[in-house]
Design a protein around this nucleic acid. Structure first.
Lengths: 225, 225
DNA sequence: GTTCCGTGACTGAATCACGATTCAGTACGA
DNA sequence: TCGTACTGAATCGTGATTCAGTCACGGAAC
């Protein structure tokens, strides 16, 4: 299992024949996408117990499916975690791109990045916990599978910084990629302590403003000196 | 094993009778502190394979001791990880306090924090990886055991910020604790991507300056407007 | 100086529980 | 009846932990 190179979520078992588009007719009193149900349940359970301490059977129970069903949608337990991360970060990325589309100035754009990352998780404490804490389970997972998608996200942030520099709004003596990591890390750290601690409601959005203020002040082109 | 409340490293097996002070006479061609040897080996192996993917027997082999010996010094595998983290962060904290003692101005002090955290790990890639990646293994570990020591460290940073505010050097419209998390997170994020990626030598110290510049600029009291 | 114990660190093969994964079978819609 | 989604009990490998011994040393007795 060291070199398992699970590529996709599991191609064969993608059970969706007729109700492919969505709830074809809701076969029972039941749900929509089963894959999504499993991901949601996994988020909840992983957050509460940690990835390695969680039994696949627990995720199954939480999702209301049989143990075996998990394996129809995911190659194995690792794949479940990685899929979770990839799915969510791609959602975040898409939402970010959409939001950025209507923010013209560099300053607004950077604030947007910060608000999005903190905002998305404000109502999703479990997801926050999984992403900031559990994802880092193993270096191997991180390096091999999650990293590419993660880099995409970092690149998006770096681009905002670089544009701001080109526009003359941000100081040019710092590396956009380094700043991207700095910004991401700062937000991640805040989310982590928030998720591990009290997680007071509204805490993240309040934090958002302060952090944005400081980072922006630090990045804005020096006027003097 | 869910509620194991391992307090100390293991009191009984603290093998050090005569050569208590240090290398009494080097019983063979061998080492110094065996506990330290194990911690060092664990750092190396955990970094390479991840905590959960690492077998206790692998740590033992890397340390050049028998499997059972690990259990003379650590209560169990979890305890090994937590001890590692606590040991190291306390070292970092001590080093930080020492270094801060000779930095009078708030600006210098904040730079000191940043340089220490990045600098300590510059030569210790494995340790960096364990702390930033592996430590977050499980929420449970983090919450129950590592958090207290971690908070001590965050508090130290927050104190530097608060002092700076009191001295009138830093803006006062942000929470010192939030800034501490921001700073820690930013550094942690940088270290993580550094450890997961190329880890070019000298990369961290170069990053150090840029990050410090930006964060400081963001924190310094606004002169105008 | 030599031999003989006693002590405690250290060893590592065997145990044994655990839990990921499988797959023979069920149920249901077409 | 066929095909497919789904089920969940049984399998089977794994690896943390244990513990019966071994080893080396220091001290005591000769």
């Amino acid at each position: 299992m060291t070199e398992s190179r699970f590529s996709t979520t599991r191609e064969p078992g993608k059970p969706r024949t007729s109700r492919a588009t969505r709830g074809g007719r809701a076969s029972r009193a039941r749900e929509g996408d089963k894959r999504e149900r499993i991901l949601r349940a996994a988020t909840r359970v992983f957050a509460r117990k940690g990835f390695y301490a969680t039994k696949v059977s627990e995720v199954a129970k939480a999702a209301g499916v049989a143990d075996g069903t998990i394996y129809l949608y995911f190659k194995n337990k690792d794949d479940l975690l990685v899929s979770l991360f990839e799915d969510r970060i791609m959602l975040l990325l898409a939402a970010l791109e959409r939001a950025l589309a209507e923010r013209p100035t560099p300053e607004e754009r950077l604030r947007c990045v910060i608000e999005m990352q903190l905002g998305l998780l404000e109502g999703e404490r479990d997801l926050a916990e999984v992403i900031t804490v559990n994802l880092r389970q193993s270096t191997r997972l991180m390096k091999q599978y999650a990293a590419p998608k993660f880099m995409l996200y970092l690149d998006a942030i770096a681009r905002v910084v670089a544009e701001g520099q080109k526009a003359g709004a941000f100081r040019t003596d710092v590396s956009p990629h380094l700043m991207a990591r700095t910004i991401f890390g700062a937000l991640d750290g805040i989310i982590m302590t928030w998720a591990l601690g009290k997680a007071e409601p509204g805490g993240l959005s309040r934090a958002s403003t302060q952090v944005a203020d400081v980072l922006l002040a630090g990045l804005l082109a020096k006027k003097e000196r």
